[in-house]
């Protein structure tokens, strides 16, 4: 298998200097990402786990080029993403997409579901309105939504429906890599299962590569074949499901696994 994404010695530091620190002439630096390296193989699903504040979201933002890393590089198909601009950056935008944690917040409250999806096709070159409508309909079928949601605004849709629109929007550009940032954790448990199943099916049908960011080990175990455990901006351990859940000797991984309700019991 070939690697689609490679992160090399990535550092993202935030300066945080309060007035008191300035008076003491001291600069405090938060190392949100501290010397992180890993690679993602095409077609795989990586789970990125760790407690809140460990740098998972910062890492996804850096991969999506929403924030600039302090040092280190990210390669997508052997191209350094920091060097992209103009059309090559636009092409990268088409190939790497994200699904957000907050289904409602990820949609513009003033636009209907149909407008949200049509806009993506418009920006990516589908100029005929009729063609866009056909594409939107096929997209809605793909994520299991009925076609009458196109006229509704996010406020009139349920959390699960909003998340499906969010997934549809990400799929609209036919991406290779999808980063799902806690994609199901804001939803009810029953809806959560539906969304996770949808993501799993889509991944297999479309041959997507996924990075699944979560603090929920149960979800990651269900979806992913490879897990990266992060703590305080560093990678603690990387391994397959068996390695992380049963064989790990790393104390942080053990504590994370054991803190999952029911997971560490023999009869589970």
């Amino acid at each position: 298998m070939t690697e689609i994404l490679k992160v090399e010695n990535l550092n993202v530091h935030f300066k945080r200097s309060s007035l008191l620190d300035l008076m003491r002439r001291k600069k405090l630096v938060t190392k949100a990402i501290d010397a992180v390296s890993f690679e993602v193989e095409r077609g795989s699903c990586i789970g990125l786990v760790g407690e809140s504040g460990c740098g998972k979201s910062t890492l996804s933002k850096a991969i999506l080029r929403l924030i600039k890393p302090t040092s280190g590089s990210i390669f997508f198909e052997n191209g350094n993403i920091q060097e992209l601009k103009g059309t090559s950056l636009f092409d990268y935008r088409r190939r790497v997409q994200m699904i957000f944690q907050d289904p409602l917040g990820s949609l513009n409250p003033r636009l209907t579901a149909g407008e949200v999806l049509e806009e993506v096709f418009y920006v990516h070159g589908v100029r005929k309105s009729a063609n866009r409508k056909i594409l939107v309909h096929s997209l809605l079928d793909k994520v299991g939504l009925s076609r009458d949601v196109v006229d509704r605004r996010p406020g009139a849709l349920s959390g699960g429906q909003c998340q499906r629109i969010g997934i549809a929007r990400a799929l609209a550009v036919d991406p290779d890599l999808i980063i799902a940032d806690e994609a199901a954790s804001a939803l009810d448990v029953s809806i959560q299962a539906q969304i996770l199943n949808l993501l799993r099916d889509l991944r297999h049908d479309m041959g997507l590569t996924m990075i699944f960011v979560s603090h929920d080990l149960g979800v990651v175990r269900y979806l992913c074949d490879d897990i990266i455990v992060m703590n305080r901006g560093q990678i603690v351990e990387r391994g397959g499901i068996d390695q992380i859940f049963d064989k790990s000797t790393n104390p942080y991984t053990r504590s994370l696994v054991e803190s999952m309700p029911g997971l560490h019991r023999q009869d589970y």
Binding site: L64, L66, L89, F90, R93, R94, V96, Q97, M98, F100, S106, L107, E119, V120, V123, H124, G166, R169, V173
Partner: peptide, 8 residues
């Protein structure tokens, strides 16, 4: 953020 990621 979604708009930026989509290349708007």
């Amino acid at each position: 953020a979604a708009g930026q990621i989509l290349g708007f």
